[in-house]
């Protein structure tokens, strides 16, 4: 089942969106992702290389994987009738096998866009120590109560005249 889309009218600054938990991550998870996208970067499967050549603590959970977890977080929340307009994040922290990662989001601002509403989120991916190694932001367009779903494909003209 696709998640039910929240209505813009019900969103308040400070609200948390439904988190996603992944892990504990293992070398098998890293191998599966590297293989799926054919990324052969040695820091993801050769511990000696990771530690001695790149001076890393261990093999790394792929940043390329973490970005799609964040996209999943926001697109799951937007559900069938909303749309993820934009998402951005920086890879600042390293995650390694053994880490359990929680993708999270908090509403920072809402903007009225006529028939729809735009919700700004602070997002991130933190490990069990609370360190957020992948901080970012996202914007999600949501329908209003009694209104139509966000048109698909996304039309950026909807955002013209958005008001905080």
């Amino acid at each position: 089942m696709l998640a039910k889309t929240p209505l813009f009218d019900s969103i308040n600054v400070g609200d948390s969106i439904t988190p996603l938990v992944k892990g504990p991550m293992t070398t098998a998870h890293i191998m599966r992702w590297s293989s799926a996208i054919e990324n052969w970067h040695r820091i993801h499967y050769d511990r000696t290389y990771a530690q001695e050549h790149d001076k890393l603590p261990d093999v790394m959970v792929n940043g390329s994987w973490k970005q799609h977890v964040l996209i999943q977080l926001v697109s799951d929340w937007a559900g069938e009738d909303g749309w993820v307009v934009e998402i951005d994040f920086q890879f600042r922290g390293m995650d390694v096998p053994g880490n359990t990662l929680t993708a999270f989001g908090t509403v920072t601002e809402t903007r009225d866009c006529g028939a729809y509403g735009l919700v700004m989120l602070e997002i991130g991916l933190k490990n069990e120590t609370g360190q957020n190694g992948t901080p970012g932001t996202a914007s999600v367009l949501l329908p209003k109560a009694g209104g139509p779903p966000v048109p698909y494909p996304f039309d950026p003209a909807i955002l013209a005249g958005a008001e905080s």
């Binding site: 089942m1 696709l2 992702w33 293989s35 996208i37 799609h68 999943q72 697109s75 799951d76 069938e80």
Partner: peptide, 30 residues
């Protein structure tokens, strides 16, 4: 399939043409 399995994202929109209004099945956004 291998991509969304590896992300551990089991949304039906990637496998079931009738699951979403996006046409489909579709690939993950990224």
């Amino acid at each position: 399939r291998r991509f969304h399995h590896a992300v551990m994202d089991d949304s039906p929109r990637y496998s079931d043409a009738g699951a979403s209004r996006y046409g489909g099945p579709v690939a993950p956004l990224g």
